Simulated assay, not measured.
Amino acid sequence: MLVGVPGGGESTSTTSTDAAPDVPPTADVRVVLDAIAATLPLPDRGRALLAGPVRGALAAGWQPGVLGAHLVDRVTTITTTTEALMRYRLRVLPETPAVCPCAACRRHVAAAEAAVRQDADRRARDRAAEHHQAAVVDAEAVAARHDALDADLGPVLHGRIVQAALAARPILRSRQLSAARIRTLAASVYTDHGHDSAAIRAYAEGLPPAPSETTTATQTAPDATDSTSPTRPIRMAPSGRLWPR
């Protein structure tokens, strides 16, 4: 008997006298057989005879849904039994759907590739979110450490550190010294000293006084010319004696 192969291919004799196997079909085999039966007439004897070849195709790596769609792709009319046509198609089955030109396999490959891309995008977003969260946690920890160092050093030594860092960066002298820039300058010194409080304090104590220290000392210390009482206006008392106003 000749088998018609819709959509191209060669016809071949597939008359079979194979007995129906006793092994019951698995769930995956039933998925394939049900896909065939939904398109072509497939009696119980045909299902039993196709179970073995279908099981072999699944063992070779084909997925049940894809295999069922491939076997019935481009089937319009047949000139032999469904069992004979399916056995022929199973014998000439491509190695994988990726190398099969049929529409069903192309749809499967396209969907699989899209799923892979979506999964890769999702994992990339997850990694980016994890990195961002880790960066936020690290930044908060560093900020807390710097705040503790600021408090430990006090304003005088902190001012010396900032002044020294500013002197090492002449380009910053012409810019507005904002609070954020001050923190950045101090942070660079803290990092250079490994956030070691003792090392940072020793470094700051060895620096020259900052201008703010000099200004404060000038404003608070009495000048030599001010050691005498200032001159006050004099007025005449009723008794004719003079006293200061």
Rank of each mutant, 00 (worst) to 15 (best):
A143L: 13
A143I: 01
A143K: 12
A144N: 12
R145T: 12
H146C: 09
D147F: 02
D147L: 08
A148S: 05
L149G: 03
L149F: 06
D150F: 10
A151V: 06
A151T: 05
D152S: 06
D152E: 13
L153K: 00
L153Y: 01
L153V: 00
G154R: 00
G154Q: 06
P155C: 08
P155M: 11
V156D: 12
V156G: 04
V156E: 10
V156H: 07
L157H: 03
L157W: 01
L157V: 00
L157Q: 04
H158W: 14
H158I: 00
H158D: 10
G159P: 01
G159T: 03
G159A: 11
R160F: 04
I161G: 01
V162S: 07
V162Y: 05
V162C: 07
Q163M: 08
Q163L: 08
A164W: 04
A167V: 00
A167G: 06
A168S: 13
A168T: 02
R169W: 10
R169G: 03
R169P: 05
P170T: 07
P170H: 09
I171M: 09
L172M: 11
L172N: 10
L172P: 09
R173F: 09
R173I: 15
S174E: 13
R175E: 15
R175I: 10
R175T: 14
R175W: 14
Q176C: 11
Q176V: 08
